[in-house]
Every structure is written in structure tokens, then in C-alpha cells.
Design a binder for these strands. Structure first.
Lengths: 353, 353
DNA sequence: TAACGGTTAGACAACGTTGTCAACGCCCTG
DNA sequence: CAGGGCGTTGACAACGTTGTCTAACCGTTA
């Protein structure tokens, strides 16, 4: 409220200046203006400064859309990013890493949330293609991406993140989900646990299945058959996870250690443990790190993913493809990391050994 | 790796189909194709289905950029969103609310991070204007936004969020920072505290100053002059806040209650309290809510903001302006809310009363 | 049968920019 | 002094789409 005039009351809403306006004011041809604003050679110093002055005076900004329409290659210097949700901190980290990697090249990022909805996946991919993005980074949801990606977008660089795509051959960046799961198992086993349980996410999500597989296989290698491991799955929110954990803790033979395959599931498990007064009695390892994990009582041991590395790699793949990389698409795996904070190092009670 | 052919090996990288291709295949004029894909009337059913079949077959998608170049009004159906950082959960919530409000109108969101850097603010605004976004939602940083927003963008809807702009007359959506601060003070006073301290963010940030002002004014009304309130400011990260809190707690007359003006500052204070074993002895109220605040020991009482409401209002303002709203720009205030969880209800020790 | 109105259809120009190309002026060389 | 080469410059078409406008066709009415 500092100025007096209302931005919205100025009547004629004067047109945004075009290159022609600048050319007219500077007394040159439009092509000369084009050369100046694009830093192309072949313009005398005298004209260059005249043009720059006119640009300044009119506050002219090129229309990139019009430019890329004519320009060879048709680059729009924008990419589309499809995440589970832009409000999700894990996605936010990926987003930021991608932005940081693309900004130096002047590439802007369209971001959108999928909410695990295959319909949205398809619609948003189409919306971005209509906007002629130079590349696409996306977390796949639909069973197959073949129908999501139109045939004739074959030259559009696409990188899948977090989950590998199906039905289409493209670059992908994923965490080592199975290895992470086995890492969790090995860690708990090394502290003497023999009664372990698994709390997992929706089984139609590939990463969740991988984490479970890695966890159970590692237990199997230590002589604990999967049939002996209570496994509760399809937990998609904190409340469901909380109830499942309560159920586990009140079962006939409660586990002495729990592996939760995802953030919200971990939160639910933490709640249940706290409510049962078992936070310091039953070990917990969660997949995926989160803020303040070290401030919990006890601190929560996790298998941390590295969203910033996933994002950086995804952006690098897009750039490489834009720069003409024709190599076979492949999958890059970002290693997970065990972070020890207390909850995963609780020992089983003597009688349970 | 499901299919055999490499997407990047198909030699001629065939051109994306245009309206002309569709028209040729369907045996009609381009304008008829245009009418069909834009759902305009005046096309016989026979031709309509022929066009749709051709669209399907070629997997044609309109080029929105080319369309809006010609189309009156020049809408690109995209907006620019400038946040402190897309990786910041508070920003993520705002982002999501904006996306949800604009998606039904087919508007896509460019998101970018400012990192509190006025240079980036200016550069990113320019980048979005070059892309001809239909509107701009931004968290202002520079001392004045007058030079950030070019003169001739006077018809471009702009909404400022979180902080009010200076030097430009535009809509703004903010939290009731001062009231929130006074709410925190009143809450702590009502539990008998008389020795309170303030831990604050960078003093050049308007919101931080407002929160402090509200807090101190409320104390003043209860007869506690600002001069008696230890005030440590310019804390921009968790570590600085932690050190400041330690200092406070080890001072001659340590406070019995602390108000921290921002998330990272709250985290630092929590750390210091835990390290000093004072978590249950010194009251703490933080500005801004965060995940797992209720799982801390004790739960952290906060003055919660409502990012989802801020985002929704911002999007609604943009839409109203796009729809021709010419009213005076003004500021909308989103009320904060006290959430009681334990840390703010700790009583001062008897000897301190 | 002629005139008319309504519907359907496509030719054409234009949106703001850049690639292509021809033309201009200047300086240098033979 | 003619000719060649080089550095500048702008006219023009084209990018993919849509607004405008006119034409063709249909059925109806006088």
C-alpha cells in the first residue's frame, strides 16, 4: 500500500512491447534487435547500445515461446516434473536438486502432484507435452507407462525417478530398495533379534515390494523363514500403520523388532510404541529418513535415501539426453545408508533370546 | 528394460505431427482440425470423427505456445511461483494448495526457489515474464519490489505471499504475525511466567520483526518492559539457534519460558533444552507448526500458520484478477492458531514466581 | 424457380520471433 | 581504378496455431 495508483485501474492496459517496438524506437530492423538480445555477433557497437537503450526504455523482454516456435530444435527451456506430491518433503528435496542442476542452463521447472493416480499421470504428461517441455522427470504410477507416453514423443527425454517404469525403455534413478531392506534386517539381526515384523506400504508399489523382499531374504539367509515373520501390508497412512502396530504388539508372540517400509508407516509405528510404553523395549528401523528423527525418544534408526542425489542424477540424465546422448537407457541406483540413532539398537529382552 | 528397441536409436527422430499433418490425414483443412481439438461448434459429425481418428492415429497434441501466440488475450495457462525453497515443507504446502486451486482451470505451475536472494528474485521474475506466465505468486525478498516488476507488466496479476511487498501496490496474503506473537506471549503469561525470552530470525525479514513486536507488546501490556526480555536475533539456522539457547539457559537469570519465532529456531531451542535436561522445566512456544511436534517429549506447543489457506487464497486472487477483477489491491490476513501440546504449558518453578 | 438464411468448410493473414539471404558500404589488393 | 572480400544490416519467409472472412452447400419459402 505504498503507492497511490491502482495497478488495475490504468485504462488501456497497454500492449506489452514487441521486438518491432524496440526496433522502431532504436531505428533499426527487428533482426538487429534479435541479434542484440540474443548476444549474436555481427552488430556494430553503436547500434548495439542504441538497441539496448531502447530495450531498457520499453522494458522489453523477449517472448521465448515465439522464439522457440521459429528457432531450430524448438527448445522451450522448460521441463515437467511429476511427483507424488509437491507437499511431500522427500519430493521437495528431489525437486530442489533438479532445479539447482537445471537453473544454470536456464531451464525452468513445471511441477505437479500425482497423488498416486494413474489418470492424473496420463493427463499431466499430456498437459506438459502440449506445453512442449524439453524433458520429463516422473514418478511412474500406472501399471505400464507405454500408453502414458505417446508414440511420437520418442525424442522427448524422460527420466523416471524412485520407481522403474514398465513397458517403456527409459532412464531411471532409484534407491537400492532391496539392499536397504536387507541392510535393516542385518542390523536388527546383529543385535540378536529373532522375532522381527514387517510393516509395509501398498503392495502395488514396486519400491515397497522390493524393500520387503530385501528384508525377508536377509532374514531367510539367517535361517528365519518368511512364514515366521509377521507381515502387515497395504498401509497407506499413519493411522492404518498405527493400528497395525498396536495389533502386532498385542499379538500372542509380539516381535522384538519392527521394520517399517516408509515414512508414514514409521510414524504410525512410533505412535503405537509410545502409546504402549514400548518405545525403549521394541527395536524399530524405518525406511527413509525424516526431520527430527534424532530428537525422538529414542532417536529413530533409519535406512536413509538420498533424494538430493536422485534429483541431481535425474537432471544430469535429462541434460545428457538433450545434449545428444544416444546411449542405451539404463537404471542408476542410489545407495541407501543406515543411520544409527538408538531405536534400531535396542536389544531383545533376555527371555526372548 | 522391458522393450528391446532403444528409444534413442531410431534414426530420423521424426518430427512431431502438426495440425497440418492431421488435416492431411483426415482430408480436411487445418481450421477444421483446430475447431475439433478446441471443441468449437460448426463441424459435422462425420468430419469430427474423421479428425479425431487422425488425431488418435498420429498421437497429435496441440502446441499451446503456438496457439496462445495467435489467440487473443495471449493466455499461456501457466503461472510462476517463487518460494523461499521448494524443499521447505511450509513452501511445499503452499505450492500444493496453489496447484490444487489452479489445476481445474488447466493452469500449470512453474516453481522456483529464491534462497532469500534479491538477485535471484529479479532474475527469476524476468525469466517467468519471458515465458509469458499469466500470473506470478511470490515471496518478496528485495527491499523494494518496484524494480523487480517491470513497468510494462502492469497488467500481469501478482500476488505476494507470506510477506507484504514494498514499493508496489499489489495483492498480498500473509499470516497474522504480530497477533501470533502476542498469542504466544499471552499463553505463556497465563501460565505464570514472568521471565520470558525471545529467539528470533533475521531482523531484515518483515515477518520476524512482526512476530517479535507482537510478543513484546503483549508482555508490555502485562507490565513486562521489553528491556527486561532477553532478545537474541539474526538466528538463521538451527545451529545458531541452539547456541543462542544454550547461552540463554546458562545466563545469570535464565528465562522460564522461551518463544522462538521460526521453525529452525524452534528446533535449535529444542536441542539445547534437551542437552541441558531442561525440556520439562523451561516452557517453549514456537511459531509455525511442524511434523511430529506432538511426538516430542514434551509435545511442542506452537502458533500454527495455515500454508494451505495462504496458497488457496493466493490462487483465488490470481484467478479473480485473470477474470477481470479491477478492485483495489489489498492484503488478506490468515489467522494463526495456538496448538497446545505440553511444552507451552510447563509452569515456572515455584521460586521463580 | 429464384431468393434467402443457416450451417459447414477452408483460404488467408497474423501472432512475435529467428533462419536465410541478398545487398550495401568499406577497405584492401593487384 | 576495378575487383574481391569482409563486416553489417534488414527484407522476407517460416514456425504452428487461430481469428476473420468468404464460399459452397443445404433446405426452405415466396
Amino acid at each position: 500500500m505504498t503507492t497511490l495508483s491502482n495497478r488495475y485501474e490504468t485504462e488501456p492496459a497497454k500492449q506489452r512491447p514487441t521486438m518491432r517496438d524496440v526496433a522502431a524506437l532504436a531505428g533499426v530492423g527487428t533482426k538487429t534487435v534479435s541479434r542484440v538480445v540474443n548476444d549474436e555477433p555481427g552488430v556494430s557497437e553503436a547500434k548495439r547500445t542504441r538497441v539496448l537503450r531502447a530495450v531498457e526504455q520499453l522494458n522489453y523482454q523477449v517472448d521465448m515461446a515465439a522464439g522457440s516456435l521459429r528457432r531450430a530444435g524448438r527448445r522451450t527451456l522448460s521441463i515437467g516434473l511429476l511427483l507424488p506430491s509437491v507437499a511431500n518433503p522427500f519430493s521437495g528435496e528431489i525437486h530442489r536438486a533438479i532445479e539447482d542442476a537445471l537453473a544454470p542452463r536456464g531451464i525452468a521447472v513445471f511441477a505437479a502432484s500425482l497423488d498416486d493416480d494413474p489418470e492424473r499421470e496420463k493427463a499431466l504428461v499430456a498437459a506438459f507435452i502440449r506445453r512442449r517441455v524439453d524433458g520429463l522427470v516422473l514418478t511412474p504410477i500406472a501399471k505400464s507407462q507405454a500408453h502414458v507416453i505417446p508414440q511420437h514423443s520418442h525424442d522427448l527425454p524422460i527420466v523416471f525417478i524412485d520407481r522403474e517404469p514398465t513397458g517403456i525403455d527409459a532412464d531411471a534413478i532409484v534407491s537400492d530398495n532391496a539392499i536397504g531392506g536387507s541392510r535393516a534386517a542385518a542390523h536388527l539381526l546383529s543385535h540378536g533379534h529373532t522375532r522381527l515384523a514387517y510393516l509395509g506400504d501398498r503392495t502395488d508399489i514396486q519400491t515397497a515390494r522390493e524393500r520387503r523382499r530385501g528384508f525377508l531374504e536377509e532374514l531367510g539367509r539367517s535361517g528365519i523363514p518368511a512364514s515366521q515373520v509377521p507381515t502387515i501390508e497395504d498401509l497407506h497412512d499413519e493411522e492404518a500403520a498405527r493400528r497395525a502396530a498396536h495389533e502386532l504388539l498385542n499379538s500372542q508372540e509380539p516381535p522384538t523388532a519392527i521394520f517399517s517400509s516408509q515414512n508414514l508407516v514409521t510414524f504410525g509405528a512410533m505412535r503405537a510404541l509410545k502409546e504402549e510404553g514400548m518405545s525403549h523395549k521394541v527395536a524399530l528401523v524405518g525406511f527413509d529418513d525424516f526431520a527430527l528423527a534424532d530428537m525422538m525418544e529414542p532417536g529413530i534408526t533409519v535406512i536413509a535415501q538420498h533424494p538430493e542425489r536422485i534429483g541431481k542424477l535425474a537432471a544430469e540424465r535429462i541434460l545428457a539426453r538433450l545434449d545428444g546422448d544416444q546411449s542405451q537407457p539404463s537404471t542408476w541406483v542410489v545407495p541407501s545408508e543406515l543411520i544409527v540413532r538408538g531405536s534400531g539398537e535396542l536389544l531383545p529382552p533376555p527371555q526372548a533370546i
